[in-house]
Design a protein around this nucleic acid. Structure first.
Lengths: 243, 243
DNA sequence: CGGTTCTTTGACGAGATTCAATGCCGGTGG
DNA sequence: CCACCGGCATTGAATCTCGTCAAAGAACCG
């Protein structure tokens, strides 16, 4: 048990403050949110399509994604989530989930009753504003994904995905460029880029061959950040975080 | 000049009320928003990447889209917009535009100074809430687009795009299924689906051949809604509007 | 160690792009 | 009112990227 465990809301607060100002009362209100925390294994479903959620899911540790299955065939991942993300804020508009939420690594989550968040937003407009901004950033990322999947070729698509992920992880203070460990398998990368895992493999091998990536066992790292960025045509402006 | 012209905010108010409750004071506040209206031709840029917007753009008549150009080559359209849509609500978070906004038909827009919208949100929380919900719906549409472009084949992709567009136009009360006229060229459809206009043409010819679409001169209409829906695997739940 | 999951390799096939031309519709001006 | 012009749609053939099939090898887990 380290100090992070006693404040499940630390990363959330830090993220919101990167987007918009909060005052002490706002931070306290967030910290007093009712919640229960759970540990879940990798590949666990946190929420399934058609479920009616009664709690918001705040990711505290580990990585997760949102995905849809196309008639039991191919899967499309539409977003990745980091510690500090509320995974289903869209649940603000009461509705059955229209996608699956799944961990990609072992994770711990905090479950917050709907009414807790609703009261927080009602009584703390600055928090509401920051959460709204967070939704806007998510939407900007989604627009970039449409572009990525729609118009880039396989190599650039994968490179762009990696650039975005690494930038987000770094901005969240979870790792540095050198120490970043990619938690996703080639299959997951394929599901996020609209490619088959086999083709992902070919492209990643090619990027290793030219020295952009290096591998250590199953662990892939970025060897040439400038090269990766160039391959992706990556411009981080849409992520709205100072480099 | 018909009665619609005198209330530029009518469609916006109607859309917001489909998402969340407003009271009389809210509606009045919207109607009193300062604005100037402009007529613009088809294919006109309303905002370009890197512009710093000072006014929100409310679409009053006609159709528009949001797009990005990939290194002066292929274009990706990431959303279509209907009358009643505010085209750059993300401008709530002050930032240079990261995409282009362009009309696809002749259109009329209302330009609303930033501070007008900001004051409206500050003083009318129900309006803020409805606008937030509107952002959530937009995000749901974007997630569906990622899936569309990432995992469906060309025919299903085009069919899905048409289903979504028609459903939105109908829900907004702009036309009925029978009377709908598609305002986009095959090139525009290609830019929205990540396909070349030539391939769009082949797929649309195929759909005409099996009786899903019919053409009258340059005007394409839907002849077999059930068939189109089936070809697309379309489920309108994500649009959050009662059928 | 043994089994499972993830990664890798090679050959082949399909769907989409590209290239090259032609045809059609609709608007404009003589 | 008709002829021309420009944008949009259409067609066919060649090419290429990515997907599919089949199988084996490497890494991690207990």
């Amino acid at each position: 048990m380290n100090s992070k465990d006693v404040d499940p809301f630390g990363r959330l607060i830090r993220k919101l403050e990167r987007l918009s100002r909060l005052d002490d009362a706002d931070r306290d209100a967030i910290r007093r949110l009712p919640c229960r925390t759970r540990s879940v294994p990798a590949q666990a479903y946190l929420l399934r399509e058609r479920d009616i959620p009664t709690e918001y899911i705040l990711l505290i540790e580990g990585y997760a994604c949102r995905s849809t299955m196309l008639d039991d065939g191919p899967r499309q991942i539409v977003s990745f989530h980091l510690p500090g993300d509320i995974l289903d804020l869209q649940n603000l508009m009461p509705h059955a989930a229209d996608q699956d939420l799944q961990t990609i690594t072992p994770a711990t989550v905090a479950l917050i009753p709907n009414e807790g968040i609703h009261a927080l937003i009602r009584e703390h407009p600055l928090v509401g504003r920051a959460l709204w901004f967070d939704c806007l950033v998510d939407a900007a990322i989604l627009r970039e994904w449409v572009l990525n999947v729609g118009r880039r070729d396989a190599r650039a698509r994968i490179a762009h995905l990696l650039c975005e992920f690494v930038t987000r992880v770094e901005a969240a203070g979870l790792a540095t460029l050198e120490s970043i460990h990619l938690p996703m398998t080639q299959e997951v990368i394929g599901d996020a880029t609209g490619l088959t895992p086999l083709h992902v493999n070919r492209m990643m091998s090619a990027m290793r061959a030219v020295g952009i990536l290096i591998r250590n066992g199953r662990d892939v790292r970025i060897a040439d950040w400038a090269g990766l960025r160039a391959a992706a045509g990556f411009d981080p402006a849409y992520l709205r975080q100072a480099a």
